[in-house]
Design a binder for these strands. Structure first.
Lengths: 195, 195
DNA sequence: TCAAGTCTACCAAGTACTAGGTAGACTCGG
DNA sequence: CCGAGTCTACCTAGTACTTGGTAGACTTGA
């Protein structure tokens, strides 16, 4: 495969940067790490992304965009339950690679990231919450979920639990963690309370 | 107040280090930050803690110990629900200060911490899970919680959700997040399913 | 006197970032 | 078609600064 150049190299940097950020942490990876990975000098990376904050913000923006695209694919699934299961799979995939959600990592290093990055992270979580709220609402309307739920509360819970489980899975290193936590919540959502 | 010295200074460093680690991140705070905070030169901090890993590990160990002591206090509360509510309050207190759970932060920066620190973090989460499992078991036995539960699964869920909520609370900056997520789970635990 | 604690003064290595330049591809008037 | 100018992409070689960590001298209380 030919060494990429120009805009292709720019993309390469974004992809490698995302991987490094998810495995090492947003504040932990350096232009030197990136340089080694993509095969150009760190000074040349500065040609594409003048400041690290620019790079990180664009990585976050790209991440949000890709995640959004995957959510839109999931929307084609026939049931709300299947859509949520697909959502769980997105997190499980991340854990399998030993990674963290990019924005979870950014949230943990909140004081070390710039304002423009923070805005992207906020937007990411807002989108996630909105999407989950929507899926749960529709699932309630269709009868897949029990009727007493508060969609945005359940969405918050699901998101928090998955982000937390991603964190814990690393420590206890087995990826089943995320799936188990998710399944537990799904059971709660689909079970009718009696009192 | 007189400037502490000797072992008192050592404790001072541990306390300040914990605060910095929780607000900035374990890998983000430096001996320089610590120096400014406790009023001695960074070289003098090295006298007490030769390597940063030594310091961070001891901070984590202390954190785990203090947390354990608080759990033992909570055990004196009359009901399992009240014990869990106390547990929630521990997390809410952290969020109010704009901090992260120390071990949550460490988990997020997993690749940047040393092995001895990792062991402390693992032990912390194991203890949390064990305590929660225990409380939920007893709550089931006493009839406070519904009978179909799997205590260790619920414990995992609760811990993951609280850690995740702590993360998200920072981004969306309002501390109510943790309480809402917790209350949602508590409702699930105390509601009898009908099918 | 002695040892614990703190200091000043370093260091090597790493950080993000910059200055200045080169090779090659593209543009465009004559 | 040609040459001058321009642009992109990358380079070498640095800047200024921070990092954790070390060596050795000074201070001070017991």
């Amino acid at each position: 495969m030919a060494k990429p150049t120009g805009r292709a190299m720019r993309d390469e940097i974004l992809i490698a940067g995302q991987e490094l950020a998810q495995s090492m942490g947003v504040a932990e990876f350096s232009y030197a790490d990136l340089s080694e990975r993509v095969g150009i000098r760190s000074a040349s990376i500065h040609h594409h992304f003048a400041k690290k904050e620019d790079l990180v913000t664009e990585i976050a923006s790209r991440y949000r965009g890709n995640f959004g695209a995957q959510l839109r694919e999931l929307e084609e699934r026939p049931s709300s339950v299947e859509q949520l299961e697909g959502y769980r799979d997105l997190f499980e995939e991340t854990v399998t690679k030993g990674d963290l959600c990019l924005c979870g990592s950014a949230a943990a290093e909140w004081s070390a990231i710039g304002d423009s990055t923070k805005d992207e992270v906020k937007a990411f979580f807002a989108e996630q919450t909105r999407w989950l709220t929507d899926v749960i609402s529709k699932g309630m309307a269709s009868g897949e979920f029990s009727s007493g739920l508060n969609p945005s509360e359940e969405a918050n819970l699901l998101l928090a639990a998955l982000e937390g489980a991603t964190l814990l899975a690393r420590v206890e290193n087995h990826g089943a963690h995320v799936g188990r936590v998710f399944d537990r919540i799904l059971t709660f959502l689909t079970t009718q309370p009696s009192k």
